[in-house]
Design a protein around this nucleic acid. Sequence first.
DNA 1: CTGGAAACGGAGCAGGCGTTCCGCTGTGGG
DNA 2: CCCACAGCGGAACGCCTGCTCCGTTTCCAG
Lengths: 185, 185
Amino acid sequence: MSQIQRADARSNRDRVVAAAREAFASAGLEVPMREVARRAGVGVATLYRHFPTRTELVATVLAERVDDCTVQVRRALDDPDPWRALSGVVREFAERQIHDRALNEALLGPGEVSAAFQRERREHAQALNVLVVRARAAGVLRDGVDADDVRAGLLAIASLRRLPAATSARVIGRVADLVLAGIRA
Amino acid sequence: MSQIQRADARSNRDRVVAAAREAFASAGLEVPMREVARRAGVGVATLYRHFPTRTELVATVLAERVDDCTVQVRRALDDPDPWRALSGVVREFAERQIHDRALNEALLGPGEVSAAFQRERREHAQALNVLVVRARAAGVLRDGVDADDVRAGLLAIASLRRLPAATSARVIGRVADLVLAGIRA
DNA sequence: CTGGAAACGGAGCAGGCGTTCCGCTGTGGG
DNA sequence: CCCACAGCGGAACGCCTGCTCCGTTTCCAG
């Protein structure tokens, strides 16, 4: 019913997405289209047949990553310990940044790219709000700390991904600790 | 004895530096050379005669900004109140980032550019160390916080400059508060 | 005032990017 | 098995960048 496209086309599309995912994660979003095509073992035309514009390819790959983050926050809602839930989200987010160079650009990139994720971001924000409200009710947050503070902390962690790789991991870890110390009662 | 160059050459050099300073601050370091030349009211060749390569122009402009930061930390050494001195450095640094888009790239940019400031960075680090040691002696720092934590916090603040201008100011302010709360006893 | 060196401006070059065009290839329904 | 056509690869286009070349203008010492 669905197979309008040939089997080899479908397989090539998958290889392109896989190559883009890997390339973006390790080298950042500015990897040239030619390079993605080369890694996928296809010609540039094939790449453009599946993704008519660079932005669409980027959006497709980033959608997966952004979803990962939302899923992670949702999962934290199941944790009965409010502080462990919230601090786990911050720490795991930091961990993700260390291993995936593309993710931070989904959150920081100039409108064009990140505008596509408004819905995902809202879902992420809502789940995070719940975590913050619970933590606040449990009295583990410093007075005056709200969800925007936590989001600002996450953004700060994400931004650090631009540092030279040699130091970014260490700095991200320190900032994550700093953010947690900054929101805790 | 020194005027080996003509008066108009000297004046053009000044205009180029001024134009670059302004352009970098408002639009970021990736402003094209043509655009800097246009703003300065000179041809590109004139620009290249004074700065043989783009990197040299960038380094010249950034050197001023980086110096500003070092001077500011040195001045804080005169403050008798250790917490006010340290927190003032963090806040003023945040303020600078909000108003100058170029500064963060001096600290974050890939080696090529930022490597030129190793000496300045060491001086900055030494002065900051003194502030941290004093604050620690005064007992206003949380246990385990060291100068690297403060530096990591400053880097986090600097990195945020890449956010869309509309939100970056607010987020930078929140993160600065978060960092201060995170290091305070 | 004048001439030659210093300085100038902008067209032009090389190279990298995203994207398109088009002649060929190989898949899969009949 | 076969051939129409979906799908392919890579050369080529247009644009933008950093940087250079060279004929022309401007300064200023004598």
